[in-house]
């Protein structure tokens, strides 16, 4: 693992579980995940749709739609304080102030009837106790900081008058207005075109350097992860199945799911006749298997994989992986070394 700074982590998630209690049963969207975020670090949480990555990010700020959602266990320690058990009043002081969030859809994530300047300024008045004028000026300043041309004019406009890229810039300005310690970016560029995506990613990186915040980058795009993150947590069916530095994940993926995911990507710099695929499909969150959740799709599956769920265990090189292959109990024909390869 790459440690950006050797301080105590700014955010520490321990055994977090977010479950949804519906008529169909209990959906274990997030089922016991652990990770840490250092100051200045960018942590990627990556996985396919339904793996629980967005629910994880919403759980940190306790923004899960409730009912039916509920944090069913675990801790989210921010500077040592547990956000899960905090009062709603205290939690509000954290949201948008110390931990901010930007969302996937810039088109729908801004209030359509409120000028964008006011949407930024209201957070400043609330958290920084600024006056109307000061907050407005600061909002205009933020718009300038995120690279919006003629910010004075734009601040008075409503979201529909802005392009998609500009709206995402406004979202970023809003999230960063109070200089948060942690920024959670939930698929921040998925709805944008690639040239705009490049602009937005560069902007987030730039502001991170300036403000020194920790960033959690939630994405399904492994390219975005490779280019922006220091460390990566790969999620599958509500669990983290591999947690390592970006270099390690891409050069030497350990979990068969991570390997399959990387192999199934079409490569822009090489030609392949056929793509590797992962057979089968993700288990239903209402009916998780008792063993390894990836077992039925895994090319290396063994009886033990169906009997018991493996733990997320740290290897010698610091990589954490949730797979029987890397334990002493492994009896499969595939040698460990081979699996590692």
């Amino acid at each position: 693992m790459k440690m950006t700074e050797n301080n105590k982590p700014i955010l520490e998630v321990k055994g977090l579980k977010t479950h949804f209690f519906t008529k169909r049963g209990v959906s274990k969207a997030v089922d016991g995940i652990d990770f840490t975020l250092q100051k200045g670090e960018t942590l990627g949480i990556v996985g396919e749709s339904g793996c629980g990555k967005s629910m994880t990010s919403l759980s940190i700020l306790r923004l899960i739609p409730s009912p039916p959602g509920k944090i069913a266990g675990g801790q989210v320690l921010y500077k040592g304080k547990d956000l899960v058990t905090m009062s709603e009043d205290e939690m509000r002081k954290i949201r948008g102030n110390e931990i901010s969030m930007i969302f996937q859809e810039p088109m729908t994530s801004l209030n359509p009837v409120i000028p964008v300047g006011e949407q930024i300024a209201e957070a400043l008045r609330l958290h920084q106790k600024m006056g109307r004028k000061a907050a407005w000026d600061r909002a205009v300043e933020m718009l300038k900081l995120v690279g919006i041309p003629s910010p004075e004019k734009r601040a008075k406009q409503e979201p529909f008058q802005l392009s998609g890229g500009m709206r995402q810039r406004v979202m970023i300005a809003m999230a960063l207005a109070c200089k948060p310690e942690v920024l959670i970016a939930d698929e921040p560029t998925t709805a944008l075109d690639v040239t705009i995506q490049a602009q937005i990613l560069a902007l987030i990186k730039d502001l991170q350097t300036k403000l020194g915040m920790g960033v959690i980058m939630i994405t399904h795009d492994l390219g975005v992860v490779a280019e922006t993150c220091d460390n990566v947590a790969v999620m599958y069916a509500g669990n983290i199945i591999e947690y390592a530095s970006t270099e390690q994940i891409f050069s030497n993926p350990k979990h068969p799911y991570t390997q399959g995911l990387l192999d199934s990507l079409p490569k822009i710099y090489e030609d392949q006749e056929e793509l590797r695929t992962i057979e089968g499909s993700v288990p239903s969150p209402y009916n998780m298997p008792s063993g390894c959740r990836f077992a039925s799709r895994c090319p290396f599956q063994q009886p033990i994989c169906y009997q018991q769920q493996p733990e997320l265990m740290e290897q010698n090189d610091g990589v954490k992986v949730r797979c029987w292959m890397y334990t002493d109990q492994w009896t499969g024909q595939v040698e460990k070394q081979e699996a590692v390869k």
């Binding site: 923004l63 948008g96 209030n111």
Partner: peptide, 26 residues
């Protein structure tokens, strides 16, 4: 249920402000 209400919550606004300022007008 809209995304911008979630944004307003993520900003740390009080429920009252969310209802009267952000939701009602829409």
């Amino acid at each position: 249920r809209q995304d911008y209400i979630r944004t307003a919550r993520a900003k740390g606004l009080r429920e009252r402000v969310i209802v009267y300022k952000h939701a009602l007008r829409n």
